[in-house]
Amino acid sequence: MSDDSSQSRASGHSSQSRASGHSSQSRASGDISQSPQSGTSNDGPQSGASSNELQSRTSGDDPQSGSPSPVSVVRKGNCGKNSISVSWQEPDRPNGIILEYEIKYFEKDQETSYTIIKCKETEIVADGLKPSSVYIFQIRARTSAGYGGFSRRFEFETSPYLAASSDRSQLPIVVVAITVGVILLALVTGLLLSGR
Score class of each variant (00 low, 15 high):
38 S>A: 14
134 V>L: 07
54 L>W: 02
109 D>Q: 12
94 P>Y: 12
131 P>L: 00
24 S>P: 11
2 S>Y: 15
45 P>K: 04
179 T>I: 01
130 K>Y: 00
166 S>D: 13
1 M>Q: 13
68 P>A: 14
190 G>I: 03
135 Y>F: 02
26 S>E: 05
44 G>Y: 01
188 V>I: 14
166 S>H: 10
66 G>T: 10
192 L>R: 07
145 A>Q: 10
134 V>F: 01
181 G>F: 12
163 A>I: 13
44 G>F: 00
113 S>L: 08
180 V>Y: 13
68 P>N: 15
102 E>H: 05
166 S>W: 05
51 S>M: 09
164 A>F: 02
132 S>G: 00
145 A>I: 01
145 A>Y: 01
1 M>V: 07
50 S>K: 08
81 K>G: 05
122 T>W: 08
46 Q>F: 03
102 E>R: 07
48 G>D: 11
42 N>G: 13
131 P>F: 07
89 Q>V: 13
69 S>K: 06
166 S>F: 06
191 L>I: 08
62 D>R: 03
21 G>T: 02
88 W>H: 06
159 S>Q: 15
163 A>Y: 07
196 R>H: 10
171 L>C: 12
184 L>V: 05
25 Q>M: 13
146 G>D: 15
58 T>L: 11
154 F>T: 01
84 I>W: 04
3 D>W: 03
134 V>T: 07
3 D>G: 09
111 E>C: 01
124 I>R: 11
81 K>V: 05
91 P>M: 09
88 W>M: 02
143 T>G: 06
113 S>K: 12
122 T>K: 11
78 N>C: 07
122 T>I: 04
170 Q>E: 07
119 C>H: 06
115 T>V: 13
158 T>E: 00
42 N>Q: 10
65 S>T: 10
78 N>H: 08
94 P>H: 14
10 A>H: 08
63 P>K: 08
178 I>L: 15
104 K>I: 11
170 Q>I: 05
102 E>D: 13
4 D>H: 15
132 S>F: 00
53 E>N: 11
37 Q>H: 06
124 I>S: 02
171 L>R: 13
156 F>K: 03
116 I>Y: 14
62 D>M: 03
162 L>Y: 02
162 L>V: 06
29 S>G: 14
137 F>C: 00
167 D>M: 05
70 P>Q: 05
148 G>P: 03
169 S>D: 11
36 P>N: 07
